[in-house]
Each structure stands twice: as structure tokens, then as C-alpha cells.
């Protein structure tokens, strides 16, 4: 306990020292994740840190305690006041931050939306760094589940909240894939449940799915909290052989279920690379070596060539990474 306190004091001291250095040349970047204590964002932070080590930029991260819509606003204001060059943020709301972003940009701060965009409010940020080509998420997840259940039977989706923009894009794509592609003609989507990214609610919703649809063959949960809860419920109910769970999850969260056979495979991308890419892009734009406009191509060490697309959207990777028994041991995030 005492050691923790000491570490905190040291960390505080370090922050103070770095504050004084902002007057110097290096580009200063701050990353504000959705909330503190979320392991997914720790990987993004790691990417930023490593990126800044090689690029020589100043990097700090601050986060609110809860992912409530307004919780990030005071942090953005404080960063403007600190005079940082770039605020990278994973926004908790698609619209509640518009005002403060406008003010930041008026003062010359670059706003990067990392990990998700702000649909309908793209004009309030400078660019968006997305983890993957989101149009592929839906079809790719349907295929992953279809393969496991022989492309036949009832399936359900366990999502986060009803207004999560990414979730809804993916779910729409899943529906379209199931309808249009004859390969999936015998797979029937029976319902969509919402677990609010809350472990407790995701658990009761999954239990209700199992109770309401005794013939259910599979669950797709394209959210890290949901897929872990679904796997836990299926394991507890001893139905792992009857109901297949796929989704988007982090390896550390899902490792147990892969190793004990509850889950055959799940997908994700590399949050680490997102951080790395964002750091490179931020420094490039600030120094004028990268033009923030559609069509620009730039090189990120370790990732290769990256293109800025329409509306200043940048995708970190094209296809999703699939994790299963063969490769899960290689990942730690």
C-alpha cells in the first residue's frame, strides 16, 4: 500500500516535470480513453507509448472514472489549457463533446477520434483512426459462426447498447449478409439482445436467450464485455457443445474459454497498432509531413502503407484477426 502511494507520488512528480517541458519542440499528445481500468484501452496506450518512444513525442494519458457521456469534457478543457498539440480520444458520446472539440480546434489543438468515430458529427474532429475496415466485421462474424454450426439453425446477437453506432453498423451488415448470401440461407436470426456492456445485464440477457430459444445454435456478441459474459453463461449452463459463442473479444479476456473449449474462435484487431498508427499520424500532421486529406498515403514503421480515406478516416488493418487454440498463446492484451 505504502509502495503504491510512493509510486503515485513519483508519477505526480513526473507529470509536473513533463509539464514544464511543453514549451520545447516535441509534439505533445494526450490520449483520453473511455474510462480508466479498461484493459482494451491499455493496449492502445501501449501503442502510443512505443510510437512516441521512436518518434520523440511527449505522451500522457488521462481518463475519467466512468464512461458516462459527459465525463471526458473537463479533461479535454484541461488539456487545451495545458497547451497540448494533439488530443486523441475514444469518445463516450457521438455528440456531447462537439462543443468542447470546436473550442479546442479553434485554439489549434488537433482532435483525433480513436477506435470509433462520431457518426453525423465528423466535422467536429480532425480525423478518425479506426481499428479495422468496419464493413467487414459483420460478414466476417457471420462466417465465423456459420462455419461452427454447419450454416444451419437459430442464432441470436448480444450487443452493447441500442445506440452504439459501431454495433448498429455491424448488426445491419450481419442482417444483410444473412439475407443476401445463399450460403447462410438456413441460418435464422431470432433476436437481438442488449447487455449495455454491463457484465450483470449481459449475463441475464444471455440466460434469457437460452431460456427463450431452446433450439438456439449460436450467439454472436460483437462486444468484449458481452462475448465474455455469453461464454461464461454457456459454460455455467453446460451447453458449450449445443450453443456456439463467437464475437469480438480480447485474448486475455477470452483465453480461459478457448483453452477449456467453451469458445472455438473469436475475432478482434490490434488495439496496439491503433495507438502506434495514431501517434505516427499525429506527429506527421503536426509537423506538416502528412497531409490530413483524402488520398494521402503515408508509411508507419511496422504497419506498412496507410491511406487516409474520405472524411479523414484511417483504418488500421483491413481484415479482422481470428483467435483460436492455435494462436491465442501468442497474444497478451
Amino acid at each position: 500500500m505504502l509502495r503504491r502511494n510512493l509510486m503515485l507520488a513519483v508519477a505526480l512528480g513526473a507529470t509536473l516535470l513533463s509539464g514544464a517541458a511543453y514549451a520545447a519542440d516535441p509534439v505533445s499528445i494526450v490520449y483520453i480513453p473511455k474510462n480508466t481500468g479498461n484493459p482494451y484501452f491499455d493496449s492502445i496506450i501501449k501503442g502510443f507509448e512505443d510510437g512516441c518512444k521512436t518518434l520523440g513525442c511527449e505522451f500522457t494519458t488521462v481518463a475519467p472514472a466512468s464512461a458516462e457521456a459527459t465525463s471526458q469534457i473537463p479533461f479535454v478543457t484541461a488539456q487545451i489549457q495545458r497547451g497540448v498539440n494533439v488530443v486523441a480520444i475514444s469518445p463516450n458520446s457521438p455528440d456531447a463533446l462537439n462543443q468542447v472539440f470546436d473550442r479546442a480546434r479553434a485554439k489549434g489543438t488537433i482532435i483525433l477520434s480513436v477506435n470509433s468515430d462520431m457518426p453525423g458529427n465528423e466535422t467536429h474532429r480532425d480525423a478518425a483512426i479506426l481499428p479495422v475496415d468496419f464493413t467487414k466485421t459483420g460478414p466476417s462474424q457471420v462466417e465465423l459462426l456459420g462455419k461452427q454450426i454447419g450454416y444451419e439453425g437459430e442464432i441470436a446477437i448480444l450487443s452493447a447498447t441500442t445506440d452504439a453506432p459501431d454495433q448498429n453498423v455491424w448488426i445491419a451488415a450481419m442482417k444483410e449478409t444473412l439475407e443476401k448470401d445463399p450460403k447462410y440461407a438456413k441460418m435464422k436470426l431470432v433476436t437481438i439482445a442488449y447487455g449495455d456492456d454491463d457484465p450483470q445485464k449481459s449475463t441475464t440477457e444471455t440466460e434469457a436467450l437460452l431460456a427463450n430459444y431452446p433450439n438456439l445454435k449460436g450467439i454472436i456478441s460483437p462486444t468484449t464485455v458481452g462475448v465474455a459474459a455469453a461464454a461464461q453463461v454457456v459454460e455455467t449452463a453446460k451447453k458449450a457443445d449445443k450453443v456456439k459463442v463467437v464475437g469480438l473479444g480480447t485474448p486475455n479476456q477470452m483465453r480461459r474459454f478457448i483453452e477449456n473449449g467453451t469458445v472455438e474462435a473469436f475475432q478482434l484487431w490490434s488495439p496496439y497498432n491503433q495507438g502506434l498508427l495514431a501517434a505516427n499520424f499525429a506527429v506527421g500532421v503536426k509537423n506538416g509531413t502528412i497531409k490530413n486529406e483524402a488520398g494521402t498515403v503515408f508509411e508507419v514503421p511496422g504497419l506498412g502503407k496507410v491511406t487516409v480515406e474520405k472524411d479523414s478516416v484511417i483504418k488500421t488493418q483491413a481484415d479482422l484477426t481470428t483467435f483460436d487454440k492455435t494462436n491465442i498463446a501468442d497474444f497478451n492484451f
Binding site: 503504491r4 502511494n5 481500468g37 484493459p39 472514472a65 465474455a228 486475455n252 477470452m254 483465453r255 480461459r256
Partner: peptide
């Protein structure tokens, strides 16, 4: 206590494994 638990854990989650 919520603050203390953040400090204690270093804001790190305890993973399933």
C-alpha cells in the same frame, strides 16, 4: 473506497485467466 480500489489495482482489471 472506489478511489482506493483504483489505486490498489493500478486501474488494472483482473482477467478471467
Amino acid at each position: 473506497y472506489r478511489g482506493l480500489l483504483f489505486i490498489l489495482s493500478g486501474s488494472k482489471q483482473i482477467d478471467p485467466n
